[in-house]
Computed example of a mutant assay.
Amino acid sequence: MSATYYFAIVGTNDSPLYEAEFGVQRDESKYLNQFIVHAALDLVDDAQFMSTACYLKTVDRYNNWNVSAYVTPSNVRLMLLHESKMDEAIRSFFVDTHELYLKTMLNPFYEPNAPIQSQTFSTKVSTLAKKHLL
């Protein structure tokens, strides 16, 4: 059985900028995934002041799910809901996704804190997920 991952980029005003699911997708758990990640935002805010690193590792657990987080210097949170313990692979995924997000931010037509709707961005995130997580 393949693992399931839910990835979200959350803006500075706690609004979702991007979200994607990788692996086995279950329609009934879509809203549960969003709820679990959103509930972990307060824990990310607390954890980011306890560490000097961008990658905060696992910040919350819900049943057999883990929520890992990566906070950019501009306070945008990259969140991953997952079942497995692959800290190095998750860190690599976050670093590469952060670089991809920065390239998107450099686009003069991108409005800060606006949802990312680019199909190219989604394709590249999926490729990074396959490379590091699946």
Score class of each variant (00 low, 15 high):
E111K: 10
E28D: 14
D27Y: 03
L134E: 11
A129H: 07
A69S: 15
N63R: 14
D46T: 02
M86C: 12
D14T: 09
S2Q: 14
N107W: 00
N63Q: 14
L43Q: 11
M105I: 00
T123L: 09
D27I: 02
A3C: 13
Y18I: 08
P112G: 13
S126T: 05
V71Q: 11
K130P: 00
L134A: 09
K85P: 03
T72M: 08
F109N: 09
L81V: 10
K57M: 05
R77Y: 04
A89M: 08
A114R: 14
T97R: 02
P115N: 12
R26T: 06
M1T: 10
L106S: 12
D46M: 01
A3Y: 15
F93W: 03
A8W: 03
Y55K: 06
V10K: 04
R77A: 11
L133A: 02
H98C: 01
T52N: 13
A39T: 12
T120G: 07
A20T: 02
Y31F: 12
T123M: 08
S74D: 11
N113E: 15
N63D: 15
L134N: 06
F22H: 12
R61A: 14
P115K: 14
L100M: 01
L56W: 15
V67C: 09
T12Y: 00
D27C: 00
T12V: 08
D45V: 08
Y6G: 14
Y101C: 03
D96W: 09
V95H: 13
H82W: 04
N33K: 01
M1K: 12
Y31N: 15
S15I: 04
T104R: 11
Q34V: 08
Y5Q: 02
T97Y: 10
D27W: 00
Q25W: 01
L41A: 06
E99I: 09
S126C: 09
S15M: 07
R77K: 15
Y101W: 06
F109L: 14
T52P: 11
T127Y: 08
Y31C: 10
C54F: 08
S2H: 09
L17N: 01
A47W: 00
L32C: 07
A40R: 04
A20M: 02
Y31P: 01
Q119G: 02
H132R: 06
S2G: 05
N64F: 15
P112F: 11
L41I: 07
E83S: 15
T104G: 01
L134F: 06
I9V: 15
M105D: 02
S51I: 04
L81F: 07
Y31G: 10
H98R: 13
V67R: 11
E21W: 00
P108G: 07
E21Y: 01
Y5V: 10
T72Y: 07
L100Q: 01
P108D: 13
L106R: 11
N13E: 13
A8Y: 00
S51V: 03
V59M: 10
Q25C: 13
K130Y: 04
L80T: 12
T104C: 11
L128I: 12
I9A: 04
F49R: 13
N63M: 14
T120S: 13
Q117W: 04
N33C: 11
H38C: 08
F22C: 05
V59T: 06
Y6M: 05
S29L: 06
E99Y: 05
Y18S: 06
A20F: 00
I9F: 10
